[in-house]
Design a protein around this nucleic acid. Structure first.
Lengths: 251, 251
DNA sequence: CGCAGAATTGATACATCTCAAGCTGGGTGG
DNA sequence: CCACCCAGCTTGAGATGTATCAATTCTGCG
């Protein structure tokens, strides 16, 4: 259980007011009183890249927000086939109030910090104060929309479109944080291994690799190292993704 | 706009107390006062099988519950590829509070009756009373779970497993209404055409047809007409679906 | 009866998977 | 400090599952 190379930033107990995800997480709408209630039942946990946080079927006595880092939700079939069903970025919520056991494996893809709430008291807060439940509904509806977009990708897109779509999704999330020039050149670092991408996209790792190479050969993307991608023409990539073009970039 | 063959049951204005979905829909937890508020902003609409209720991108000034019949949510790509992303049964909710335009096509698969609420007043009720939002959160979390199961199907299952899974899903929903003998012989009527099944499963219509024939030849299912299916051994079908066996039948 | 929509079946093409062999870069121990 | 090692990745060749294109065959209904 010793720490490897990069020690994750230590959050022993950050005041909610100073929290980096204060305005986007499940607590976004809370007033000072509510925040204080949450503060009393919260604790931080850190995980190393690659670590499995929860196994599907495990008893889970907390819910949590991702503070920093990236985690995935994955389903596994008996014979080992795996499908990612959630990609959790900072501010995203993990766990389901009212459920005893985890429905999916939760894995830290990078070093990760989570703000955990003991489940029972969290459920109580949800009943007594409106803002947590309201925000959670909003976030869950967003996740459902994302899941449905993902279903279109899994059911109908070609391998090349899937790869292009994934890069677009990651690039957009990056752009939503640091503005950058809307249309032209875009630079992204993939936070996923080829294997994790294949689990996201419902492909094999080899097909992922081949299609990335193909996009590179066609000049749609440029690659340095394994993970660092430059997109010379973002609109061109969006076309490759097969998405309804209309943008929705700022919507 | 004339009525065809089977005229749907007419619900001009049913008292909420007598509503067939009273205890399962978004209003399930409402007390009499809340119910009365909803009653004031509701109206019924009927649709014929095959009719498109909403087009993706349309302005949508209501949200609704399915009262009877079946509807689908579908996404369409520019070149016409289509993926179903939602299958709505009685009590299921349509629309998203706080959103202006529809994100998906909504199509009546059978004759259909919906209980519609004007959006703005509905949103007001959600803010002022807790029970509607709480129930909607619960339902949305259930839908998200279903979507994630669906993603595993789309991303990792074979055509045969997809067909078997779909029959299991439909059979379970039927069983959850009328009890029936838990394990043995099960009888189902498919509420979907082969084409609708193909849109659900991310397959072509021809592959759906072939795999149904294959399951029939292997004795996993028996078919009378196009839609009526008998499952002599439900556990056998579940195996074919590739699902984690543990059941979860009554959970 | 005969039509039209729905479904089945066949032959072939093709995208992706599978199995297998190398490559690459960064960390480690000698 | 260098050689090795190994996880992550790339590339190749061939197998295979599903899509595509094209006839038929059903079935309910006018």
């Amino acid at each position: 259980m010793s720490r490897t190379s990069t020690a994750p930033t230590k959050f022993t107990h950050v005041a909610c007011g100073d929290c980096p995800i204060r305005h986007r997480a499940v607590c976004a709408r809370c007033d000072d009183t509510e925040l204080k209630q949450l503060d009393e039942i919260k604790y931080y946990r850190s995980f190393q890249a690659g670590q499995t946080i929860v196994w599907s079927g495990d008893r889970m006595d907390f819910v949590a927000s991702v503070v920093s880092g990236i985690a995935t939700l994955t389903q596994t079939m008996e014979d080992g086939r795996r499908q990612m069903v959630g990609l959790l970025l900072p501010a995203d919520f993990v766990g389901r109030p009212g459920r005893e056991t985890a429905a999916y494996d939760v894995v830290a893809t990078t070093d990760l910090v989570m703000c955990c709430f003991r489940k029972k008291p969290f459920e109580d807060i949800m009943v007594t104060t409106p803002h947590v439940g309201q925000r959670l509904l909003e976030m869950t509806l967003d996740e459902l929309d994302a899941a449905r977009e993902w279903m279109l990708l899994l059911g109908r897109k070609t391998a090349r479109e899937k790869i292009a779509s994934l890069i677009v999704i990651i690039a957009r999330r990056d752009l939503s944080l640091k503005p950058g020039d809307a249309d032209g050149r875009v630079v992204v670092d993939l936070p996923l291994t080829r294997e994790a991408m294949s689990e996201y996209l419902g492909l094999t790792l080899e097909t992922v690799s081949r299609q990335i190479s193909a996009l590179r050969k066609d000049g749609i993307i440029q690659i340095e190292g394994k993970r660092h991608i430059t997109i010379p023409d973002f609109d061109r990539l969006i076309e490759e993704a097969g998405d309804d073009s209309d943008g929705g970039f700022l919507a």
